[in-house]
C-alpha cells in the first residue's frame, strides 16, 4: 500500500530516471496532466508459428492510482497495425501477447474515461511487491520492475 502523495513523488522519479524510455521497444512515455498517471507505448511484432505473416502491434500502457486499494494500477490495450492505421484490438486471447504476460496477472476489461482497457488486478499487490513498510522509498521501483519491466522488454519488436 502506498499513499497517493508518495505514489506521485515516486512515479515522477521513475519518469525522469528514463527506465521506461530505455526499454528497446519503447515508442514514447509521457506523464499525463496532473502528474499522477503515466502513459507509454511499446512496439510489439508477433510472428506466429507456421505463419509467415507478422502482425505489428502497439502496446499502450497506463499506470495510474487505484484509490480503493491505494496501490498503483497497470492498464493496457493493444493496437494492431492494419491498412496503414492502428486499430484497437480487443481479443487478447487470440494474440501471443497473452502467453507473454506474467501468469499471475488477473486481468479484467473495465472502463477508464469511458474507454475499455485491460486492467491488472491490484488486490494482491502487497504480496507481489512486498510490504511498503520494508522499503517505502523504493515501493514504485519494485512495483515497476515486477508489474512491467520484467516482461515488457521481452516482447519481440523486430
Amino acid at each position: 500500500m502506498i499513499g497517493y502523495n508518495e505514489y506521485v513523488t515516486q512515479l515522477n522519479v521513475i519518469y525522469h530516471s528514463g527506465q521506461l524510455q530505455d526499454v528497446s521497444n519503447c515508442e514514447f512515455v509521457k506523464m499525463l496532466p496532473g502528474g499522477d498517471a503515466l502513459e507509454a507505448r511499446f512496439k510489439y511484432i508477433s510472428t506466429p508459428e507456421c505463419n509467415i505473416n507478422t502482425s505489428v502491434y502497439s502496446l499502450e500502457v497506463l499506470i495510474q492510482y487505484d484509490t480503493t486499494f491505494q496501490e498503483p494500477q497497470l492498464a493496457f490495450r493493444l493496437w494492431q497495425w492494419d491498412h496503414n492505421v492502428y486499430k484497437l484490438y480487443y481479443e487478447l486471447e487470440n494474440t501471443p501477447l497473452q502467453t507473454q504476460l506474467p501468469p499471475w496477472f488477473v486481468v479484467n476489461i473495465d472502463l477508464i474515461s469511458n474507454e475499455p482497457w485491460y486492467i491488472v488486478g491490484v488486490c494482491d499487490t502487497p504480496e507481489v511487491v512486498g510490504s511498503s513498510a520494508l522499503d517505502q522509498e523504493h515501493y514504485m521501483e519494485r512495483w515497476m520492475a515486477v508489474y512491467l519491466l520484467h516482461w515488457i522488454h521481452l516482447l519481440p519488436c523486430k
Binding site: 486499430k87 484497437l88 480487443y90 481479443e91 488477473v106 479484467n108 476489461i109 473495465d110
Partner: peptide, 24 residues
Amino acid sequence: DRKLPYGFIPLIAGEGQLESFWMH
C-alpha cells in the same frame, strides 16, 4: 473499432468475463 461507442466494454469471453468482473 474507433466507431464503437464510448462506454462500451466488449464481451469477448462470455460469461467468464462477467463472472471475473463481478469477482473483482
